[in-house]
Amino acid sequence: MLTQEIKDAIEAHVKYFGSKEEALLLSLHSIQEHLGHIPEEALEELSYILDIPLHHIKGVVAFYEMFDTGEKAKHRIYVCNSIVCYLLKSHKVFNAVKELLGIEPGQVTRDGMFKLVEVQCLGACSEAPVFMVDNDIYKYESKERLHEILAKYS
């Protein structure tokens, strides 16, 4: 399940911190980045590599919102629906994504390319309404502009 590339990344995290426990969160980030989600089998392998009990790792994965054990998706669109974005009409972003990709929050497109995730404050409120595609933050301007941005990720 875990490719050599992921194992190398995990090893690098452990070396960086000099601690397997401190490397856990970053290892989970690496798994999700490479696999598009965090499958159960990956956690078993990770538990073995880091020598951390599987139940502890599962507890951690369930706690942090960004870790996704659900359906695999190549890219994630995080749309902020916190107070400031809400005041500045974040529903337009959800509607635009739905129109373009046919997905609601929590759903993945049929081709497995995008998952729409509703999140709390992304911390760029002066640009509200905002959304993030994987690691990049954007201001929502129009449906056309959103289409252009998403095209870059396909």
Binding site: L26, H29, Y64, E65
Partner: peptide, 10 residues
Amino acid sequence: ILVARGAGAY
């Protein structure tokens, strides 16, 4: 100085 990363928890 080490940089640790959270994963979405206020």
